[in-house]
Structures are given as C-alpha cells and as structure tokens.
Amino acid sequence: MIVFDLECRASAHRFEGWFGSSAEFEQQRGRGLVTCPVCGSGDVVKAVMAPHVGRKGNQSMAQATPDAPAVAPALAQAVAVEPAAAAPPLPPQAVAALRAFALAQAEALKASTWVGDKFADDVRAMHYGDKAEAQVHGRTSPEEARALIDEGIDIAPVIVPFAPPGEVN
C-alpha cells in the first residue's frame, strides 16, 4: 500500500489516501472514486509530500555532555529518546536508566570475546570442561539457546542491539 497526501483543487483541503499503486490512484481518480472528504469535490490531485528518510545507522544520536558520556552509535540508536509516533515520551528517569544499561552492556562486551556463530559450541565446551572458561558473546538460534539453558549452561541475551564486529558500515 502507498499513502499519498492528496489535495482538492476547489478548496485546497488536504487529506491522505491509501492505494495499491500510483496507477491504482489514477484509475480511481479517473472513474470519479476519489473525492475530498471535506467538500466532496472530485477535482483531487496528489499534494507535494516530504518523504521520511531514516537516520543512517552509523550516525550518533547521543553526544557527550558533562552529566552523560557519549554512547556508541549502535547503542545510541537503541536508547533513542525520540518517541514513536503514537507513544508518549519516556520519563527522564527511564531514559537515564536505559542509557546506563546500554553503557554497562557495552563495557561488558568490551571484556568479552566475539565468537560469532560458534557461540553454542564454545559455551557448551566450556561448560563440560573441554575448553578453558572465558567471557564470550555471539549468536545462536532461540532453540539452541533454550537447549543450552536446559543443559544448565548459564547464558543471557544481549538486551540492547549492537552490530557484531565486521558488520558495521
């Protein structure tokens, strides 16, 4: 579906319409099915729209201030203080708590080694004494994570999203 900002030429009323494609809009308009909901005029055209362009993933949203240190770009994106369109803004205490959690996770990841897709194999080998214990992080499927927990292996998810080494642009 495509959302178009529309405008009636008679009174310049602006409204939006949802269509399957630009061609579908033109077809419906040609058959007189698109009318202004305010005045009923059938002389409706597409209005000029400003597209929403998302922020690049490698741009930092949080800058260092005297009371709050800078947050890594991936972590800053995860704890963005910009509210969603329908969501109320987070209280300042919640934002501060999320920022502190993200920073704590970033510090923990610095002291850990990225093992990528070998995570389940590595922690299982450490648990059973086949490999020296070390702090590691990596990725595995939800099913494999459940199997590790069922085996009594202590694991925890990385809560704040981050970009694994080699996957940042």
Rank of each mutant, 00 (worst) to 15 (best):
S21H: 06
A80Q: 14
P83C: 11
P51D: 07
A94K: 09
S41C: 13
K118C: 05
K131L: 13
G40Y: 15
Q63W: 09
P88S: 02
A76W: 05
A156H: 06
A125M: 05
A84W: 12
P157S: 01
Q135A: 12
E26Q: 12
R55G: 02
V95C: 08
Q135S: 08
T35W: 15
A72K: 04
V44F: 15
K46P: 11
G17L: 06
A68E: 15
C36K: 01
A64E: 09
S11C: 14
A106W: 09
K46A: 04
D5Q: 08
A72W: 09
Q27I: 03
T35S: 12
G40R: 09
A68R: 11
A10C: 10
A80H: 12
A134Q: 07
E26D: 13
E7D: 10
G152Q: 01
D150P: 03
L98Q: 06
K110D: 07
A70E: 00
Q28V: 04
A94D: 07
Q93Y: 00
V136K: 02
E16M: 12
S41G: 09
S141V: 02
A74Y: 08
D67L: 13
V79Q: 00
A87K: 14
T35L: 07
W114E: 02
D117Y: 14
N58A: 04
E7P: 02
A108F: 08
E133G: 01
A68I: 12
F119L: 06
A111Q: 13
V53G: 08
P92Q: 08
G166S: 03
A163D: 11
A78D: 08
E107C: 00
Q63F: 05
A10E: 14
L75Y: 14
A97F: 09
A76V: 04
M61N: 07
A125Y: 04
R99E: 07
L103K: 01
G54W: 12
V81L: 11
A84T: 15
A125E: 03
L148F: 14
G20L: 10
V34Y: 04
K56M: 11
A74F: 07
C39W: 15
E7W: 13
P83M: 07
F15A: 03
R139E: 06
A62N: 05
G30N: 03
K56D: 10
F101K: 02
A62W: 10
A108V: 10
D117M: 13
Q77M: 10
A104T: 09
H127P: 04
P157A: 00
T65F: 07
A47H: 10
I155A: 06
H13R: 01
A134G: 03
M1V: 13
P51I: 09
S22V: 00
D43T: 09
N169L: 13
L75F: 15
A84G: 15
A97R: 10
T113P: 02
V44I: 15
K110A: 05
A106S: 00
R31M: 06
R99D: 01
A76Y: 06
I153K: 00
P88N: 00
